[in-house]
Simulated assay, not measured.
Amino acid sequence: MRIPPFYRLPSFQRFFAGAVIGGIVSWMIFIFMYGSMHEKQTQKILDQQTQLDKLTSTLSYLQEENKELNEENEDELTIQEVRVKILNPTKTKVELLSLHRAEETLSQDLRSLLNQNLETAHDNKELIKKIIENKTIKLNDKPFRLEVKEIYFYTTTDLTLALKYEE
């Protein structure tokens, strides 16, 4: 068995030459298209990377600024409201209206705490406690003393007091 000698025919030679030249041309077109597409994608990635870097730096700057502002605001917090709650043990048997009036009176007395810095008020908490505990109030013509149970300092300061007979 023998391979036919088509390589001598000019039509086959032109066909093979055309196929080789076509392959080379198509490979060059492929390389050109792939290269230009790859270059566009690389440029797009670089643009996105620079944008990401800018946004990251802006975010970190804004977070730092926000943290500083929060710290400044926290330092400048003031007392906006003073709430007094008097607990009435069953053995004192004081009317609710009298307790409410006493709470209002104490709230008026503690008005000096309003718009005061939280740190200052917290530092003077023992003084506030002594002032309240040394105060004698009359309810139903009987003298009572107040005992501080709890004090919470924040923009709204809560005082929880207990009523005791004066001895």
Score class of each variant (00 low, 15 high):
143 P>V: 09
108 Q>D: 09
71 E>Y: 01
121 A>R: 08
114 L>H: 10
126 E>W: 13
102 A>V: 02
64 E>A: 05
155 T>V: 14
52 L>E: 11
85 K>L: 08
113 L>A: 08
57 S>T: 13
29 I>Y: 01
89 P>W: 05
119 E>M: 07
151 I>C: 06
49 Q>P: 04
152 Y>N: 09
54 K>Q: 12
103 E>W: 01
122 H>Y: 08
62 L>M: 10
112 S>N: 09
70 N>W: 02
81 E>L: 15
91 K>F: 13
37 M>F: 08
51 Q>V: 09
62 L>S: 06
99 L>I: 15
26 S>F: 11
41 Q>H: 14
71 E>N: 15
157 T>G: 06
91 K>N: 12
75 D>Q: 15
90 T>P: 08
143 P>D: 12
98 S>E: 13
137 I>P: 12
52 L>N: 13
127 L>A: 05
114 L>E: 04
109 D>T: 10
131 I>F: 04
148 V>T: 10
105 T>R: 13
26 S>C: 05
132 I>W: 00
63 Q>M: 02
44 K>I: 02
126 E>A: 04
24 I>L: 15
35 G>P: 00
65 E>N: 04
129 K>E: 05
137 I>C: 09
30 F>W: 12
135 K>N: 09
104 E>M: 12
113 L>R: 07
66 N>T: 04
111 R>D: 03
69 L>S: 06
66 N>Q: 07
128 I>Q: 07
52 L>M: 15
36 S>N: 10
151 I>T: 07
103 E>S: 13
140 N>H: 04
66 N>P: 02
89 P>C: 03
156 T>E: 15
93 K>A: 11
150 E>K: 14
161 L>H: 10
134 N>A: 07
102 A>S: 14
71 E>V: 15
45 I>G: 06
64 E>D: 05
83 R>H: 07
44 K>V: 00
30 F>K: 02
161 L>T: 10
109 D>H: 02
101 R>E: 12
33 M>I: 14
104 E>A: 12
35 G>V: 00
79 I>F: 07
31 I>H: 02
152 Y>G: 06
73 N>I: 14
29 I>V: 14
112 S>K: 08
52 L>V: 14
141 D>V: 07
45 I>F: 12
149 K>I: 15
111 R>S: 13
24 I>A: 15
126 E>V: 04
146 L>W: 01
81 E>A: 09
53 D>F: 01
136 T>D: 00
121 A>Q: 05
27 W>L: 00
131 I>L: 05
97 L>Q: 05
38 H>P: 01
61 Y>N: 01
42 T>G: 06
31 I>A: 03
73 N>C: 03
95 E>A: 15
